[in-house]
Nucleic acid binder design. Sequence first.
DNA 1: GATAGCATGTAACGGGTTACATGATTTA
DNA 2: TAAATCATGTAACCCGTTACATGCTATC
Lengths: 182, 182
Amino acid sequence: MALEHAILVSLLEQPGSGYELARRFDRSIGYFWTATHQQIYRVLKRMENDGWVDVREVAQDGRPDKKEYSVAEAGRSALSGWLRDPVEPETIRHDLAVKIRAVAFDDPSALIAEVVRHREIHVARLEHFLEGEKRDFPDPGALGTRQTLQHAVLRGGIAFQRMHIEWLDDVLATLHRLRPDN
Amino acid sequence: MALEHAILVSLLEQPGSGYELARRFDRSIGYFWTATHQQIYRVLKRMENDGWVDVREVAQDGRPDKKEYSVAEAGRSALSGWLRDPVEPETIRHDLAVKIRAVAFDDPSALIAEVVRHREIHVARLEHFLEGEKRDFPDPGALGTRQTLQHAVLRGGIAFQRMHIEWLDDVLATLHRLRPDN
DNA sequence: GATAGCATGTAACGGGTTACATGATTTA
DNA sequence: TAAATCATGTAACCCGTTACATGCTATC
């Protein structure tokens, strides 16, 4: 499990509330990890109980109060220990691949639309990532350590989207070859 | 959720026991989906209760009896309906990416070994996939529908491994640039 | 005699998803 | 006045992981 560690990294980069963390998981952290606010609040509470994070009530005007979390010493060393533990490479669970093999027992036409839809989503994500790259890392030669690492992770997200788009093109060509009448 | 649908596809390709399904999930289905025998037995029981699969007790000599499952009509139409429903593209959850960003607050050297380890695992998986390709699809021009689709899925797995290896090389170069003394 | 393979399960735990719930403020 | 944003949570359900459990047969 890395959600708690992803939260620790994000809070080390910048302390913030559960709500703010949820927004970060929609943006930069979303390049490699997703989490909903429900998950985040649940884990934050556990981390608070375990002494991994400190909380500070912050009054705001024109907005609800918030709880600002920051990393405590125990959290820092928990992260450090985890960094030294091996983690498993990601296992693939790809619904589309199941559907592709299922087409052998069904009509391909419905799947073609679905593959096109997925392709569009990956193209949109790629564009979003490329915009983020242009905005946040315009001069890759002149980055600090933190940004150099963030950029390397973002390049992984970009490569992931590009690979998907190419593979989906391949799948589409294959599906069309199955029915030349289409 | 696609485990039950992956099982349906596998049983359509070839009826079999829970044990046999578990082995298939270690092999060809493992290109795009993983599952343990515990999961499979649990889901098979549910599918049996729902009338998606039929069971037949098969006595064997020199081996324990087994329950051979095959797809029932209700299972076939459930799969057909699912094929027509949109599924979400995979969300990325990448522990290594969390670790990479965490390095900004820790020593990079431990991570380098971990990245090298991951790279080796992906190289081994790539080789395994390429062997499977050579063995099962030696003449891609002369495949039936089912195998053409299986091959397309396998090409996705191959592309996934290649992308990973390239990205991990990129990450390693980045980490080394952070510490030119290493 | 020990290990590996065949075959089927139960139980406990934690994580992820979805739905539900509240309440204030700002903007269209 | 309706919708969007800020902010925090509870509850239920299912899925995936890990550990435990049994017992037979074939091979080394």
